[in-house]
Design a protein around this nucleic acid. Structure first.
Lengths: 206, 206
DNA sequence: TTTTGTGAAGACATTCACAGCG
DNA sequence: CGCTGTGAATGTCTTCACAAAA
């Protein structure tokens, strides 16, 4: 549901960019492939932002949604594991949208990692994780290390006071209840796609 | 649900690797952070694989699950858009697990894209998309192009007979009903994490 | 005994449909 | 009228709890 809010935020931004000032739940729903009642419910959940018979003011609504998501305040992010994937994440504009700041990266081999990177985010040795982030507020750690060390690195991150982890490693990591974890797992998506593709070809034959 | 099957497949592989021959739904559930009834229901959905009072034979079950997911047969994949993200996907071992073959990539600037890649997947000009994949069976296209051209490229892919799309572009793409689309959207995950982090800090204050 | 497979219950999410406001 | 906000209805997914099988 919060993910949908984030979608609303994104589409409102694009409406604003296009100079559209007024929008209806039906139009938002159409653009995102959702049901209009769902859009209204999601928004109504946090207050009364709409005007019956009119719709929503794009500008107003966007401010409200950003307020709810707290996208208005700075999120401090670090990257742990600067291999192929980590490097890509660093250079992929659009990964860090406004409101997110990548402070630094960590890797077992910071020198070679730094060479690959075309961003100006400093890469430190992972041995210095604790000392480098000591005393700093780190909101989110992006985890892109090899599977074998994922749990160990996670434990260290939690000890360092990291509040949330975006995990690109294809395994479940154990964390205390108050730590937020979100998973991004490409190959899972690929495999599930494969399943439906199969169905498709079977359907064609029948 | 199919995603969970894929998780089972992965964990069964690791059990097999460790030489574990027998497994219970409770143990699988524990490892994946699920409920044991869920694991049993998911599996029971496709047949009776378990033995009451014993559990499941790891090897047997894995074969069954791979059969259901059709991970046993080759999936032919292409990559469209070989920018930062696309490049990373190409070099990221683990993206393409066994059963998936990356045939080639396409980009507006194949020369510079090829330079970045350390894989031996050939990169062609996107103008030649139709001619290069003509007559070939392509199961899945991985979409990693800029937002502005995502819909146009999608249309071309569909015309070329691609059956499924794994979309890394942060926007909804329109496709005919019989085409499968799956979305991978990092920044959405980041934003939703941010929301809960906020909650966390509020909770701490109270 | 142990652990499966599964109806029944429960929790959660989505959609319908309409009163009421602008 | 048009469109929101929202109870009620529906649908979907998850968990419980237990009879039956090994």
């Amino acid at each position: 549901m919060i993910k949908r809010l984030s979608l609303y935020s994104r589409i409102l931004q694009s409406f604003e960019f296009q100079g559209i000032e007024k929008i209806s739940s039906a139009e938002v729903a159409r653009r995102l492939g959702l049901n209009s009642a769902q859009v209204r419910k999601d928004l109504a959940c946090f207050g009364q932002f709409g005007i019956p018979g009119f719709g929503y003011h794009v500008n107003d609504l966007r401010k409200q949604v950003r307020g709810i998501l707290k996208t208005d305040r700075e999120m401090r992010v670090i990257l742990v594991g600067v291999g192929n994937l980590g490097t890509a994440l660093l250079s992929y504009r659009g990964f860090l949208k406004q409101g997110f700041t990548m402070l630094f990266g960590f890797d077992v081999n910071p020198r070679s990692a730094e060479g690959r990177t075309r961003s100006n985010v400093p890469i430190y040795d992972i041995r210095d994780l604790e000392s480098k982030i000591e005393g700093q507020r780190i909101d989110i750690a992006v985890l892109a290390v090899p599977v074998e060390v994922a749990q160990e690195v996670t434990n260290r991150l939690v000890k360092c006071g990291v509040l949330a982890i975006l995990n690109f490693v294809p395994m479940r990591i154990e964390v205390p209840a108050h730590i937020q974890v979100r998973y991004v797992d490409f190959s899972l998506e690929l495999e599930s796609l494969a399943y439906y593709v199969q169905d498709r070809e079977k359907a064609k034959r029948e």
